[in-house]
Design a protein around this nucleic acid. Sequence first.
DNA 1: TAGATTGTTAATCGATTAACAATC
DNA 2: TAGATTGTTAATCGATTAACAATC
Lengths: 220, 220
Amino acid sequence: MPGNKAVVKTGNEKSISPAVIKRLPRYYRYLGDLLKNDVVRISSKELSQRMNVTASQIRQDLNNFGGFGQQGYGYNVEYLYNEMGKILGLDRTNNIIIVGAGNLGQALANNQDFDSNGFKIIGLFDVNPRLIGMTVRGVEVYDIDMLETFLKEHEVMIAALTLPKSKAVKVAEQLVDLGIKALWNFAPVDLHFSEDILVENVHLAESIMTLSYRIHSQNQ
Amino acid sequence: MPGNKAVVKTGNEKSISPAVIKRLPRYYRYLGDLLKNDVVRISSKELSQRMNVTASQIRQDLNNFGGFGQQGYGYNVEYLYNEMGKILGLDRTNNIIIVGAGNLGQALANNQDFDSNGFKIIGLFDVNPRLIGMTVRGVEVYDIDMLETFLKEHEVMIAALTLPKSKAVKVAEQLVDLGIKALWNFAPVDLHFSEDILVENVHLAESIMTLSYRIHSQNQ
DNA sequence: TAGATTGTTAATCGATTAACAATC
DNA sequence: TAGATTGTTAATCGATTAACAATC
């Protein structure tokens, strides 16, 4: 069986470059699609053609985490998919709260892609009395004053920040004080905390601006 | 006055690296914040400290587009802000349609950050009869069958794709056939068209997975 | 003018690609 | 076994940082 000898590195892992980390979910998505299409094995070359990257890059990237393939054979799709899932931490349940239950917060709560990957939204929070008490896909919207109580009772690693820029920094600080370790930030501000607090930004305005740049720089 | 001698490059621009392009909106955001706080001038050094990058990188990045600063003085904030706006194409109106009027589509339509930067959402489209006819922040939800008619009557460069993965590819093809030049893709698929069709992806599932990776790779 | 800071070249660093021996 | 393809080292490419002459 391919993969049997996959090396699980122990001790001090060498740190993986951000460029590699950003590519991992895309590998995972392609492997998931292949699996759904009952593809049993795939070589780095064929995967590279589908993904429009070099085979060399795929092999280099994967080998940061171990030898998942087999010479002369390639990679077993299901095995590699599962291993990548473990690497990404998708084999556990990752509880998430969403702070800011407006349109964007509700959109995240409704997104089904998340729970299929071990992400579980267990609460929304807002200041708006018209939203408090609502449920979105079975998840309740709580008063933001309930944050402390809620976080004492539930183990939550990730908080999504889908609230106005003006409130984002203060709420983020509060969340970190309450023990949140990772912020998924949708507000157009940069958040700075100590090293062990992780921040992942989704800056939609910046995303559309790069598209605008590319449109207008094309033909002049 | 600083900036008077800014060189507007003409002819064949040397192409700007993607890494630089991705940083431009962040400069623009910081400059906007400075402007709001009535800061008149700023040096690359001071800006670099606020943004947590090197001064060298700022100067290199800006000089891809011209000499906007002045020795011994730094950069005039308002001037640089406006110039960056032009570079990003924000001095024009960029009409956008949103295809998929579910939660995410509505969240985008409701986002006020966009229209303050020249982006104008002029229509939402969906197949769901319960959504068609609705208005979101004054913008109507049309039957998706109206796309062709609508696009003949309005000049639209950008289409946001906020619809299920299963429909994304087909609708994207249709949009490109109807003359759309830029796709802002929120569906978890990769879209491939000819070179002149621009695609900017917002893969939320991939974003949260990198956060998950970082959480779980921290302490082992 | 003297001091400050840019614009830009050169040096360094990191990431990608190529090549190939190892091996299934 | 012969062919295929990995894992990995070496070469290349691109991006970042440092340095400094130009100049406001």
